[in-house]
Design a protein around this nucleic acid. Structure first.
Lengths: 218, 218
DNA sequence: ATATGTGAACATTTTCACAGCT
DNA sequence: AGCTGTGAAAATGTTCACATAT
C-alpha cells in the first residue's frame, strides 16, 4: 500500500525506463483487446522477469488483483499518471536542421502525452519556413514564445558547439527538462532534468560488443 | 595489471558508456593541447567521481602514472582500442526516411571509427536516389551488398511495424550489431548486440522528472 | 489454483580509504 | 607531495520465496 507519498525519491532511473516499456506494451495489449495481463506475460513481452515487473510497480502502489493479474486498461492509465503523460507537455524543438525537422515529424507526440508547439533556429535562412503546422522561429524569441505556448520541455538538435549556450538560454527561459541530441555533457542547474541521446555513444557500445564477441545491448 | 584476458566478461554496460564519455573528453583535451590529465579533472569534465574514473579504467589495465595522472594521447588511444573504434566498422542505414537520411549525414562517422557504406529501403520511390556519395539500395539486395561492402553494424530507422522483420533479415545476412531507432523490443539470437534509441522513452523519463519535481537525468 | 506484493537474500555497482609508485 | 590502482565497505539494484488475497 502506498498513499502517494508526495516525494518519490528512491525510484531508480532504470525503473522509470522500464515503466515506459510496460506502458508501450500495455497499449499494444489493449489494442489487441486483451483485458488482463499477469506480471509473467508482461515480463515476457519486454524481456524481463516477473519479479522485476512486480517490484517496479510496487514502488507506486498495488495495481493488481491477486490470483488474477492486472487490468490492462487500469494499469495503463495508472502508468500514464505515474509517468506524468496523462497531460500534454509543451515541447519545443530547438535547431531546425535535418535531425530537428525529422524529429518534429515524429507522429505520435500527441498520443503519447506531448505536444510539439514550436521550432526554433538562429539561422535567418531557416526562420520563417513552415514545417507542418508550425513556423520556424527566431531563437531570440524563445522566452516570449515559450511563455505564450507553455514550453516545458526543449529538444535540442543544435551543433555541439552551440549546445551549452542554447541550453543556458532555454533554462533561463524557465524550461526545466531538456532532451539533448548534441554529443555534449550539458551543465545545468539543480532542478533541471537532462536526457542525452548520443548516436556515437551507442555505436561505440556496439563496437565494444563486437570487438569483445558479446551479444545483447539493452 | 591485466594481460588481455581474452574474454572480458564482468565489465558493465554503464562502464562502457562512461568510457565513451572519457574518450570524447580526451579528444577535447588533446584538441586544446593539454598533455596530461588526472582522474579528478576527467571526472569533473564528465560529472562523475575520480574513483569512478579510476575504477572504470582499472578493469582494462593501468594506464596512468602515479603522482602524475594520465597521458591524454596515450589514454585516448588505449580507449579507442578498448572500445574497438581504432578500425573502421562498416555501417548501413536501413530505412531511407527522414530520420535515416538525417543520421546518414552525421558528420563524424569516419573520425569516430565508423564508415557509412550503404543505405537501404524497400520503397521503389526511394531506391536509386543519391544521398551524398551513396545511392539508396533495394533492401532485397542487403545480403549481397552487406557481404561486398563489409557491413557489420546496421542502423534501423524503419517504421515500428517493419522493425522485427528487417532485424531478422539483417541478422540472417550476418550482421551482429544493430542500432535500433524503432520503438520496439527486437527479438534477436544470442550473439547479436542491440542498442535501442527511443525518443518516446526519453521524453517519458523527462515527464516523470517534471511531474515529480526532480532534476537530473543522465 | 493462481498470481500479487514484499521482506529478505543475493548480486552488482559505486564509493572509500590507503598502500604503493613517481 | 601527488595521484594512481585496488581491495574492502557501503549503497544500490535484482531475484527469491512465501504469506496473502481472489
Amino acid at each position: 500500500m502506498n498513499f502517494f507519498t508526495s516525494t518519490m525519491r528512491n525510484v531508480s532511473q532504470s525503473t522509470v525506463r522500464r515503466l515506459s516499456l510496460y506502458l508501450r506494451c500495455l497499449e499494444d495489449f489493449r489494442a489487441r483487446g486483451i483485458p488482463t495481463v499477469s506480471s509473467r506475460e508482461l515480463a515476457e513481452s519486454v524481456g524481463l522477469t516477473p519479479a522485476q515487473v512486480r517490484k517496479d510497480l510496487s514502488y507506486f502502489g498495488s495495481f493488481g488483483k491477486r490470483g488474477l493479474g492486472y487490468s490492462v486498461q487500469d494499469l495503463e492509465s495508472r502508468l500514464r499518471g505515474i509517468l506524468g503523460v496523462d497531460r500534454g507537455w509543451g515541447i519545443a524543438v530547438v535547431g531546425a536542421g535535418r535531425i530537428g525537422l525529422a524529429l518534429a515529424r515524429y507522429p505520435s507526440f500527441r498520443t503519447r502525452g506531448f505536444e510539439l508547439r514550436a521550432i526554433f533556429d538562429n539561422d535567418p535562412a531557416k526562420i520563417g519556413r513552415r514545417w507542418g503546422a508550425l513556423t520556424v522561429q527566431d531563437i531570440d524569441k524563445f522566452p516570449k514564445v515559450a511563455r505564450a505556448r507553455g514550453i516545458e520541455i526543449a529538444i535540442l538538435t543544435v551543433p555541439e558547439s552551440a549546445a551549452q549556450e542554447v541550453a543556458d538560454r532555454v533554462v533561463a527561459a524557465g524550461v526545466r527538462a531538456i532532451l539533448n541530441f548534441a554529443p555534449a555533457g550539458l551543465q545545468v542547474p539543480d532542478g533541471v532534468a537532462v536526457n542525452n541521446v548520443d548516436m556515437a555513444l551507442e555505436l561505440e557500445g556496439l563496437a565494444f560488443a563486437l570487438a569483445n564477441g558479446e551479444g545483447s545491448g539493452d
